[in-house]
């Protein structure tokens, strides 16, 4: 166990985050550690550093965690969350520059095969227009 990179999905909308996670589970399966978070604590659209940290924890793998985000705040809050991680984990969490749904499915497929964190990130980012 924990031999696969974990995937975290961070969206402004809890529905988008859950929907993207559903697609990963259905298409790739349950073997890859996966967590999602979305919405601000007040119930509106947004992201929160605290819930991102918790999601990283749920999807934690010794091989690292790849985060997929949607818009601006999701990215900056994810980066903030990474900075707040214990030092020994900081280097093993990355934010992927990729579309959230497609990136999550691609990253999870790559993670499923036992790829390294860097390979997982590169696979997700291969999708982005050149």
């Amino acid at each position: 166990m924990n031999d696969k990179v974990g995937i975290v999905i961070v969206s402004h909308s809890p529905d988008v985050a859950k929907g993207a996670a559903d697609m990963v589970r259905q298409m790739v399966g349950n073997e890859v550690p996966l967590a999602f978070t979305g919405g601000d604590p007040g119930g509106g659209l947004g992201t929160s550093v605290e819930t991102i940290l918790a999601a990283i924890d749920r999807a934690w793998s010794e091989k690292g965690v790849a985060i997929l985000v949607d818009l601006g705040g999701a990215e900056t809050n994810s980066e903030m969350a990474i900075e707040m991680l214990p030092e020994d984990r900081q280097g093993r969490v990355v934010v992927c520059n990729a579309p959230i749904v497609e990136g999550a499915v691609m990253a999870a497929t790559e993670a499923w095969g036992g790829a390294t964190l860097d390979e997982v990130r590169r696979t997700a980012e291969e999708l982005s227009p050149a």
């Binding site: 298409m27 497929t109 499923w112 095969g113 036992g114």
Partner: peptide, 8 residues
């Protein structure tokens, strides 16, 4: 996804 997983 299935094909890739199998190949891997």
């Amino acid at each position: 996804v299935k094909l890739t997983k199998l190949a891997k």
